[in-house]
Design a protein around this nucleic acid. Structure first.
Lengths: 145, 145
DNA sequence: GCCTTTTCCTACTGAACGAGTCGGAATTTT
DNA sequence: AAAATTCCGACTCGTTCAGTAGGAAAAGGC
């Protein structure tokens, strides 16, 4: 289990989608502009999201992406898993303590997974809207390139 | 927060030290042999452990390494932190949701840290000895190079 | 029917990092 | 003096991360 910036971008992007996509699909160009990311990189990320069935796409003019499920049915864990290249993290321990430690380390992964599964896009949205101080209300338009 | 195989090796090695080092310092060659690791790599790892004050070294013939503290006063978190190159993991999020998400991600680190702080070398030792099925009793001698 | 907007696909690059090796110097015991 | 050990600094090699690039295919609007 590992979370890189690619995974964090994916969450940011889907959060943007949740907040702006009502029924209409949202083009990546919009997400890119609002979040200050590159369209090309987002394409790559959304490819993974689509494969996992988290978003669906509409091609052509006035197309874009839309969530496949309700925002409260999509956990952050799923989003991250969708875009992280899951390399098989082999057990690094000598002959001694092998099983003991490998259980211990997979407990760590479990722990992370739990944290990420408890949060959904909806819960983050709510927090973003609900106005916890610090969760700045978002300007709909961000600095343009 | 990140745990690589270097960190896992460090825990394995210190666990070995806890089990075999009574008062005498334990040479890395022994640890390497028992755990099937390279002495050179262990040297590197123990350098980090020493800097953080987790082990002390005795040079020269019949020298080696010894824990600085009791095994129940050394958490796995410390061990890992000692040998992982802590790269500054910059926040990856657009202007929107910045603070919200950065709190969320640091919550994840917190969660990992808690898990790793709750385990000490002693608790792992105990589990290794205590004979949970699966925690194989360790052969003192391992396949020699 | 053409043009624009969009997703889609397939490479490619550059930098950083992880994992581990290597050679030798310094120190202490035997 | 010789052997065992830690100490130190460099170096290699492969993988992964992050991001770019160029164009092909689909759909809508005029």
């Amino acid at each position: 289990m590992n979370v890189t910036s690619r995974g964090r971008y994916a969450v940011t992007a889907l959060l943007d989608l949740s907040l702006h996509g009502c029924q209409q699909p949202v083009p990546l160009a919009d997400v890119a502009r609002r979040q200050g990311l590159s369209v090309k990189y987002l394409e790559q990320i959304f490819c993974g999201l689509k494969n996992r069935g988290l978003v669906e796409s509409v091609r052509g003019a006035s197309g874009g992406y839309r969530l496949c499920r309700a925002a409260d049915a999509i956990s952050v864990a799923e989003v991250v898993a969708a875009v992280e290249a899951q390399k098989i993290t082999q057990d690094a321990a000598g002959p001694v303590h092998q099983t003991l430690l490998s259980e211990f380390w997979s407990g760590l992964s479990e722990c992370m997974r739990n944290y990420l599964e408890d949060a959904t896009l909806a819960s983050l949205c709510e927090c973003a809207r609900g106005g916890q101080p610090g969760c700045a209300e978002q300007g709909d338009e961000a600095p343009r390139a």
